[in-house]
């Protein structure tokens, strides 16, 4: 039996971005989280959620990552602990679709974080704008064989390619909003009608 996939704009998408203290989910801490929902194809900035995360013992922030996000341990000390933050994240993701730019980075951090805090990772459906960029490029090549090279997967670059304005990068919430907007454009470019066309 076939279960038909819902129209693309029926589910609620939560665009999420993490700023981390490095690139290794097994060693480095999550230091901030930004989320913003897309309901019926409209980004709801008023429902945005963003917070810094209190540093965990034994997971220092790598100096080279500070250059990007400009957050120092001192800024974070009064912030809620990871467990409380992840509960907030999960509460929002309940029944929705997780939208990230490059799941290869964010997902391991989320999964590992949940495991550390003794929380179950509920495996939400995931849509990744990096996949969509590749598909949009493939689609263009179909119509124009021998065309362009590999598209840039960088969030800011991809936004520029698709005519979106520049936003300040490396702030978790702004990157989440950036991802959400890019998603709306790419959804149109690849002509996705149903959720399954996006996954």
């Amino acid at each position: 039996m076939f279960f038909s996939s819902p129209p693309w704009d029926l589910p609620v998408y939560w665009a999420l971005d993490l700023e981390t203290g490095g690139l290794d989910a097994r060693q480095d801490p999550i230091i901030s989280v930004g989320m913003v929902p897309i309901r019926a194809g409209v980004i709801q900035l008023g429902e945005a959620f963003s917070t810094l995360v209190r540093p965990e013992a034994g997971r220092p922030i790598k100096p080279e990552s500070v250059r990007a996000h400009q957050l120092l341990a001192g800024d974070l000390r009064k912030s809620p602990p990871l467990r409380a933050v992840l509960l907030e994240v999960d509460r929002r993701l309940e029944g929705g679709v997780l939208l990230v730019h490059n799941q290869g980075i964010d997902l391991p951090f989320l999964k590992d974080g949940h495991a550390r805090c003794g929380l179950p990772w509920k495996k939400p459906r995931v849509v990744d704008t990096v996949d969509l960029i590749v598909r949009a490029a493939t689609r263009r090549r179909l119509f124009r064989p021998g065309g362009e090279e590999m598209p840039s997967l960088n969030l800011g670059e991809a936004r520029r390619v698709h005519g979106l304005p520049d936003y300040q990068a490396h702030d978790a919430l702004t990157d989440a909003v950036s991802t959400a907007e890019l998603f709306l454009v790419l959804r149109h470019v690849i002509g996705a009608k149903r959720l399954r066309d996006l996954r």
């Binding site: 194809g41 980004i43 709801q44 900035l45 008023g46 300040q168 702004t174 909003v177 959400a180 709306l184």
Partner: peptide
């Protein structure tokens, strides 16, 4: 970012902060 952009766009640039903040809470992107 969206909120700063709106804030710098007339006539939003002349709004008192509290009025503006109230409106920014319901900002949407399409």
């Amino acid at each position: 970012d969206p909120v700063s952009f709106i804030r710098s766009t007339p006539p939003f640039d002349s709004l008192p902060q509290d009025l503006f903040d109230g409106a920014a809470k319901s900002l949407e992107v399409i």
